[in-house]
Design a protein around this nucleic acid. Structure first.
Length: 211
DNA sequence: ATCCCGAGGG
DNA sequence: CCCTCTGGAT
């Protein structure tokens, strides 16, 4: 089976395997999704989900985050790690959202990428999950690892991986595809110990021994 | 010691 | 391409 066919087969099987796949970082609220996604860098979603309820009560809108006192936002998100970078990103992004976008998270790739701390990964998550747009494939650590393990691409940089995957998957499924890969990565094909014996798509995986 | 649903800077 | 930023779980 050639690569495009195999990729479509993987997608079809993942759809069947995880019919109700929901990212725990998903929100209807674009700002909360944006902040959650920034917090998720090098951090499990369990820990993100532990701080976000209180965080969104304390900072209900972009203005509140933008006006957070020095050190206070940092302390509020400390447990998610990289808190200095993340606080700077959240504050800076929310300032621009208030000043340029009237307090509403923008819904275009170009405008999202202008926000400090937002690159393609975060922008794709917001566009796909908050605004229902298929602007691209979300490339996070799971997608990176799985696309390598499954032999979908040997590229290493996120941009090249996204370009490769975008060519293999129909545009209508871009957001869903990355979503399913991430779900599968967390469920059975994780970094430490991939449980290939429990994997329903093992037959579609080259298992080249690549880690 | 290694990894976690990244981004920015050199 | 590389490096740094950070706490928490395993």
């Amino acid at each position: 089976m050639d690569l495009p066919s195999r990729t479509l087969a993987i997608l079809a099987n993942l759809k069947k395997e995880y019919p109700e796949a929901k990212c725990s970082l998903e929100h209807g609220n674009p700002l909360q999704l944006l902040v959650s996604t920034i917090l998720s860098a090098q951090c499990t979603d369990e820990r993100v989900n532990k701080v976000t309820p209180g965080l969104f009560r304390k900072y209900p809108d972009a203005g509140a985050f933008a006006g957070a006192r020095a050190g206070e936002l940092e302390a509020d998100i400390r447990s998610t790690g990289f808190f200095n970078n993340k606080a700077k990103s959240i504050r800076g992004a929310c300032r621009l959202i208030v000043e340029k976008h009237g307090g509403q998270v923008p819904d275009t790739m170009e405008e999202l990428l202008e926000l400090p701390g937002v690159a393609r990964k975060t922008a794709n998550v917001v566009l796909g999950n908050a605004f229902g747009k298929n602007e691209g494939v979300v490339v996070d650590t799971h997608v990176t690892r799985l696309s390598r393990r499954m032999g979908l691409t040997r590229q290493k940089s996120p941009e090249k991986i996204e370009k490769a995957l975008v060519k293999l998957v129909p545009r209508a499924d871009w957001a869903l595809f990355s979503h399913l890969l991430i779900h599968h990565g967390r469920a059975v094909c994780d970094a430490r110990s991939p449980r290939c014996d429990e994997c329903r798509i093992a037959a579609l995986c080259p298992k080249t021994g690549v880690k």
